[in-house]
């Protein structure tokens, strides 16, 4: 059963469990590869997570001169191969979401790999396993579709799909609180 990472942005309470969990994934070298931002930092407490969306046509890999960023058969865009990355940082400039991180000491880029050691076997990535508010979920396409139907009230106020720069393997959703509307469930 193919599952995807699914983000329901407005649920986020800013606990940063996902950052902590990310550091604990087998190959992550105890460094997290995801982000949590305050939407309007001086005014309210709404936060949103941001992570690699695993683009179908990933700008990071296209811009890499060393072919260090491989695409796994599950669609996950992997972190740089340590022996290939030449440290040019093209990928960090190319990514439309600013995701790849660069370690100057190690001359190596590292990024979210969707915890490939887990997700390739259908186990949710660390972030989705720990998120206490269901902001990050690991769902099948049918489940995602059902959610979108549930949120789609056809009154132009619900945003059920957000404009992204490109087609991504991660699905992002923002069902409504920020539009001043109470959630249905």
């Amino acid at each position: 059963m193919n599952k995807r990472l699914y983000l329901e942005l407005e649920n986020c309470i800013g606990c940063r469990s996902c950052l902590a969990a990310c550091t604990q994934c087998g190959g992550h070298d105890e460094r997290n590869r995801n982000y949590v931002y305050d939407v309007n930092p001086l005014v309210n407490t709404q936060t949103m997570p941001l992570m690699c969306l695993h683009c179908v046509n990933p700008a990071c890999a296209r811009s890499c001169p060393a072919q260090a960023i491989q695409i796994h058969e599950t669609g996950a865009v992997l972190s740089a191969l340590v022996e290939k990355c030449i440290g040019c940082q093209n990928c960090t400039i190319a990514c439309p979401y600013g995701i790849p991180k660069f370690d100057t000491e190690q001359n190596l880029m590292y990024k979210c790999d969707l915890c490939i050691d887990r997700s390739k076997d259908g186990i949710p990535p660390m972030c989705a396993s720990v998120c206490p508010t269901n902001t990050l979920q690991w769902l099948t396409d049918e489940e995602i579709e059902r959610k979108q139907k549930q949120f789609n009230v056809k009154n132009d106020k619900w945003v059920t799909s957000i404009h992204l720069e490109n087609e991504t393997n991660v699905r992002v959703n923002l069902p409504g609180i920020l539009q001043g509307i109470t959630k249905l469930y």
Partner: peptide, 25 residues
Amino acid sequence: YRIAQFSGFPTHQVKVKEANQNANG
């Protein structure tokens, strides 16, 4: 800027430095 696209609020225009993004493993 991406958060701004998500939320509709111009987060990138708020002059607050990025913080609290690294967890200690």
